[in-house]
Write a protein that binds this DNA or RNA. Structure first.
Length: 600
DNA sequence: CGAGAACGCGCG
DNA sequence: AAAGCGCGCGTTCTCG
């Protein structure tokens, strides 16, 4: 099968005249980002068109032609963020459908390449060796052109494959993801500013603490016994040698290799068996050493280096749309969704982690952030139609309510007993959302099987519809292999894998994501409108991040209130998009401040 | 020497 | 029958 090589604008217009229907589109570019490269080729493919456009042969290149793609298509692509970036750089934002989103709408989310989809869905091997070839060469080889058109071919095949397997409901779910493209690009391009001096000071303090703890551990466990303080196998071997069987038998073991678990939790637990002894001191010191070492390796110098590599001192992460099974986002390179909350490093002293304090707004600007309160509990109540749960989560404090009934009387959140009771109740409710049974719950709550079961029984009696909803979802998955989501999408589980934890949690996690997806889409549109009208500064107002149930913006100091109001409105309306008429009382919580930690 | 498994842990 | 959900990343260690 042959393809047309398009080398002038008139021929491009003729080809585009055939693109008033879904048409696969793929670019080959001279770099990964518009800032330092250009679109060399565009490949177009539908049932009556198969062509490669060489923009180096057209005066003005792609930038002079991008507008011609508007009002056509929709353009079917793999990874909408990539193609959209090049369109945006050329001042156009055409209608785009991501075939990956179609797959996610039907099967559930995940991170995968075009080659993965071709293998899984078309059962073919996609050759990728030409992908990194020189797309700036004056004369492209036949192999390059053949490779280029092949990507458009498979993209079109994948589109046909998935439209044959999806319904209008799936299309809505895919659209929900497609619609976030512009907002996500804004977040990824903005990045978060790091206060490198403050963070460097923090890292130095961490290093002091780590060195002190290492000395403590070393005074009791010399190098001859354990050469590397970061090595779990070495500690497992050493402890296996020195401790008697009665100790080893209660030491938690690792899953795959059945070694001694060298986790903070296991170390603290085992330390508790030797009160007032040097063993307790050593195990506690090791537990602390591990914690601080984690902070240093994950959130220390590497974060400073990442910021220092960018021209403006910002940390730019990726926000991967639909990356989780439930289509939740993931973040990577670095993962901004796992930056530690600012809190005490160790319960017994005053050192703070303060990592979020290092992420700042530039001079003259502020950060603005809102998050949804207890969104998963809310959506479980709404999905299941459980009025009691909805009432408790909206107008009260579910955890305190549950704690009160378990205790048989009102609890006081200020007393240690009250705190413990509430914390236990929290464990029960999370257990319900995670679909846990008495066995799992008794382990995480560190209680007996009987007590765990009684908590579950209580929860089931107070919130019968929410409790039963999870089993209804499981029944669906066991009979069809699929779970149906609130946004019209489905997640493939397979009848055999329809266990309660997944069937209980996926619909809830997905519903929360669907609300956030609408929030991002609405908020991006709102910011664009206010920037367009001049009410907000065009260059210094931006969407920075989504942390699952939260949004973060940056805005000029005297415009932060406007942005805050807009964010609150957008997030509230987004929730109503999926749950019209639902109560919005205490739905969101937010603030404005100079850094990520201090958002009053 | 590089890839990948295993572990542990940060976040929601 | 058995079952707490979802991620990404740094480190160590094994394997080929």
């Amino acid at each position: 099968m042959t393809y047309d090589l398009i080398l002038d604008k008139a021929a491009l217009r003729r080809a585009l005249a055939l693109c008033t229907k879904p048409t696969a589109l793929d670019f080959e570019t001279t770099s990964l980002r518009p800032i330092d490269g250009r679109v060399r080729l565009a490949q177009l493919r539908n049932d009556e068109l198969r062509c490669v456009v060489d923009f180096d042969q057209i005066p003005g290149g792609f930038a002079a032609c991008a507008g011609l793609f508007l009002g056509l298509g929709p353009w079917v692509v793999f990874n909408s963020g990539f193609e959209m970036r090049w369109f945006l750089a050329a001042g156009a934002a055409p209608d785009i459908i991501d075939v990956g989103h179609l797959r996610r709408a039907r099967m559930g989310g995940g991170r995968f390449s075009l080659a993965d989809m071709v293998l899984w869905d078309l059962e073919k091997v996609l050759e990728k060796t030409e992908q990194v070839s020189n797309w700036a060469a004056p004369e492209l080889t036949d192999a390059q052109l053949e490779y280029a058109i092949k990507d458009a071919d498979v993209t079109f095949e994948l589109y046909q494959h998935w439209t044959g397997k999806t319904t209008a409901a799936h299309d809505r779910a895919a659209q929900l993801l497609d619609d976030m493209t512009l907002g996500v690009i804004e977040m990824e391009e903005a990045g978060m500013l790091l206060d490198r001096r403050a963070h460097r000071d923090l890292v130095r303090r961490w290093e002091e603490i780590r060195d002190e703890l290492a000395t403590q551990v070393r005074s009791l466990i010399p190098e001859e016994d354990v050469a590397n303080l970061n090595s779990n196998p070495q500690f497992s071997d050493f402890f296996s040698r020195i401790f008697p069987d009665r100790v080893l038998s209660v030491w938690p073991k690792t899953e795959k290799t059945n070694q001694l678990e060298i986790s903070g939790e296991a170390l603290s637990k085992m330390a508790g068996l030797f009160p007032g002894t040097p063993i307790e001191t050593a195990l506690d010191a090791l537990s602390r050493y591990r914690k601080i070492q984690k902070y240093l390796s994950s959130f220390g110098q590497t974060v400073i280096d990442t910021a220092a590599r960018s021209a403006d001192g910002r940390v730019r992460a990726r926000f991967n749309v639909g990356a989780a099974r439930t289509c939740r986002f993931s973040s990577s390179g670095p993962n901004l969704q796992q930056v530690p909350r600012d809190k005490k490093l160790f319960a017994s002293d005053d050192d703070q982690t303060r990592v979020r304090k290092s992420f700042i707004a530039p001079p003259g600007s502020l950060l603005v952030s809102y998050d949804y309160s207890a969104i998963e509990m809310r959506v479980l109540a709404l999905l299941s139609g459980d009025d009691q749960l909805l009432h408790d989560v909206v107008f009260g404090d579910v955890h305190s309510e549950v704690a009160a009934v378990i205790a048989g009387h009102k609890i006081d959140k200020k007393t240690p007993e009250g705190k413990a009771a509430r914390s236990a109740a929290k464990g029960v409710s999370f257990g319900i959302i995670y679909g846990s049974a008495a066995g799992g719950l008794s382990i995480t709550m560190r209680t007996t099987l009987e007590k765990a079961q009684s908590y579950i029984d209580f929860w089931a009696a107070r919130y019968p519809r929410a409790f039963a909803y999870r089993f209804l979802m499981q029944e669906e998955a066991q009979s069809t292999g699929f779970l149906t989501m609130n946004d019209g999408g489905t997640i493939y589980l397979g009848k055999k894998n329809a266990d309660l934890p997944k069937c209980a949690n996926y619909p809830v996690q997905r519903a929360a994501l669907s609300v956030m997806a609408r929030a991002i889409t609405r908020h991006k549109a709102t910011l664009d409108r206010l920037r367009g009208s001049g009410e907000l500064d065009r260059d210094r107002t931006m969407l920075l991040a989504t942390i699952h149930d939260a949004l973060i913006d940056e805005a000029l100091e005297d415009q932060a209130e406007i942005v805050k109001q807009a964010m609150a409105e957008d997030m509230t309306q987004a929730y109503l998009d999926f749950f019209p008429g639902a109560p919005t009382d205490n739905l969101i919580e937010g603030g404005v401040g100079p850094n990520w930690a201090d958002l009053g």
